[in-house]
Design a protein around this nucleic acid. Structure first.
Length: 278
DNA sequence: ATAGTCACCTGAGCGC
DNA sequence: TGCGCTCAGGTGACTA
């Protein structure tokens, strides 16, 4: 569930409910996430200053540091109260004043929760991350520069968090389709023009998805961010064997870095002859 | 440094 | 109904 738009949607839904509110305590029911959850005992009765995001990490910013929360493959957060019955895999509660509980739910337990004292960006998980795709330093020229000498497939290249953060399997496929680029092309062979198109596509696809997710989860209190709306917008992901929405050609499935990858063999010919309009 | 593979874990869906 | 297999939105740690 959680790619960057879902994380951002979660952030936007949660922040008005808990910013400026005192975090009273944290209940760890099951510490066995990707890394064992180990939080300082002193982390109680502190005010949440802001809820931020870096890549797919949510940052619960306090005066002296931050909780760094990652949702992994199957994690979600929702607002409940202390009497809300527990479901299986509800591993952690952040108990705020006013009976507001942010409940962490993660069946596969690939997510993580860390505490990092200021400065928060010194945390090892955040140290080597590339730029935000929606930020200023991310553009076609940046991608072209980093792609020098890189022989990995361009899809793997843009999914590499050292290159740019927040582009997961769904959005990598969708962005490459929109830019008309074949996912398997070696990163160094993609032209500057095509990278400019790709950078635009990444921003567009992420922003549109955040917008739609925001609509779907306007009353965010529930998790479940698997919006029907969003699914309607998918052009290639999960559509192998079906006709391309643009040209009708049967979409093809391949595997890249152990991840399934769907593309249109006609619209995505090589390094992007044209941007696909949808 | 780079590219490729493994691993972590649970649940859903499918064929038999 | 049950069993075994494959796959799933992420990403750090290994290996050559």
């Amino acid at each position: 569930m959680p790619e960057l738009p879902e994380v951002e949607t979660t952030r936007r839904g949660l922040s008005p409910l808990i910013e400026g509110v005192r975090l009273e305590r944290i209940v760890v029911r099951d510490p066995r996430l990707r890394w064992p959850v180990q939080l300082p005992a002193s982390l109680r009765d502190v005010e949440l200053r802001s809820l931020g995001r870096r890549a797919k990490y949510l940052l619960f910013n306090m005066d002296h540091g931050a909780l760094i929360v990652h949702l992994g493959m199957s994690g979600s957060l929702r607002i409940v109260n202390q009497h809300t019955p527990l479901k299986t895999h509800d591993h952690v509660d952040l108990v705020f004043a006013g009976d507001r509980v942010v409940r962490y739910h993660d069946p596969r337990r690939f997510g993580s929760i860390h505490w990092q004292a200021n400065p928060v960006d010194q945390h090892w998980l955040l140290q080597k991350l590339g730029p935000e795709p929606l930020g200023d330093e991310f553009d076609g020229a940046y991608l072209k520069r980093l792609a020098r000498g890189r022989r990995v497939a361009v899809k793997n290249f843009i999914m590499d968090a050292h290159v740019v953060v927040g582009v997961g399997n769904i959005y990598a496929a969708e962005s490459l389709f929109r830019a008309g680029i074949r996912p398997t092309v070696a990163a160094h062979r993609v032209t500057l023009t095509a990278y400019e198109s790709l950078a635009r596509a990444i921003r567009f696809v992420l922003q549109r998805s955040i917008h739609v997710g925001g609509t779907t989860l306007r009353d965010f209190v529930d998790h479940d961010g698997n919006p029907g709306y969003f699914k309607q917008l998918l052009n290639v992901y999960g559509r192998d064997g079906q006709p391309c929405r643009v040209c009708g050609t049967t979409l093809r499935l391949t595997r890249l870095g152990q991840r399934s990858t769907v593309f249109c063999p006609k619209c995505q010919r090589f390094q992007g002859f044209r941007e696909v309009n949808c």
